[in-house]
């Protein structure tokens, strides 16, 4: 078990982060480079002013009619995306690990808070699972890939949560936590998880069209 753990936090982490970073750069680069070939309209009508105006509205909770009409989803969605970024970046365990290897460090959040935020992530994920299973317009467009994405995100948080509390076998849980997190990072560029980056591009483009050409709001 120790050997596996050693591999995962050593070479495994290098592989995972390399695939994640290079994969994302390649994916986004491919979209941007392909744009002039068949989608020159996107560049022709691109407008920083209207594009970012739209982006800002959609980054503010309840800043759009769509969000106002779906208050529970909006609440859960914002809580989820906030926590899912904050927890892995600022939880003490991760920062200490980085400090041990690279002697760089940054702020951390208190463990108790990290625990609560992780719980929020898990509850939000449960909500997303539930929507896929029981909300008919979501169920209709759900395929195994959607459950795969949910599983990819759920696993590292769930195992991390269990490991932190020392339930079941700590070492096993820790290994599963790191392993699933690395799988998540590796899968990220090749799945719709890439929406985190590509979604910004599509938002800015439609914002440009709605603001610059159609002269209306898109929120």
């Amino acid at each position: 078990m120790d050997k596996i753990y050693g591999f995962l936090i050593g070479p495994g982490a290098w592989i995972a982060f390399s695939v994640f970073i290079l994969g994302c750069i390649c994916k986004i680069g491919a979209i941007i480079l392909a744009t002039p070939k068949k989608d020159r309209v996107v560049l022709a009508y691109f407008s920083p002013k209207y594009g970012f105006r739209s982006l800002i509205h959609w980054l503010i909770p309840f800043g759009t009619i769509s969000m106002q009409e779906n208050p529970l989803f909006t609440l859960v969605s914002f809580a989820f995306h906030f926590c899912v970024l904050i927890v892995p970046l600022f939880i003490t365990g991760h920062v200490v690990l980085v400090e041990t290897f690279w002697s760089v460090s940054w702020w951390t959040i208190p463990d108790k808070l990290g625990d609560i935020l992780t719980l929020i992530v898990l509850l939000c994920l449960a909500f997303f699972w539930g929507r896929r299973l029981w909300v008919k317009e979501v169920k209709f467009v759900t395929s195994w890939t959607d459950f795969l994405l949910l599983s990819l995100v759920t696993a590292p948080f769930l195992f991390g949560f269990i490991a932190y509390h020392g339930w079941i076998d700590y070492k096993l849980m820790l290994v599963l936590h790191v392993l699933s997190a690395e799988i998540l990072l590796i899968a990220f560029p090749f799945t719709r998880l890439i929406h985190m980056f590509v979604g910004l591009l599509t938002r800015v483009y439609i914002g440009s069209e709605f603001g610059g050409v159609r002269h209306v709001k898109d929120w």
Binding site: A34, T35, S66, R131, V135, F140, S143, R192, H195, Y205
Partner: peptide, 28 residues
């Protein structure tokens, strides 16, 4: 392959199948 490109790819990679567009449609 000849008439679509980055835009179509971006839309397919970005849609999270959340269903929030449903209530916008009069047919729905």
């Amino acid at each position: 392959s000849k008439e679509t490109g980055a835009r179509l790819q971006a839309y397919i990679q970005t849609c999270m199948h959340c269903g929030l567009c449903s209530k916008a449609c009069h047919y729905y």
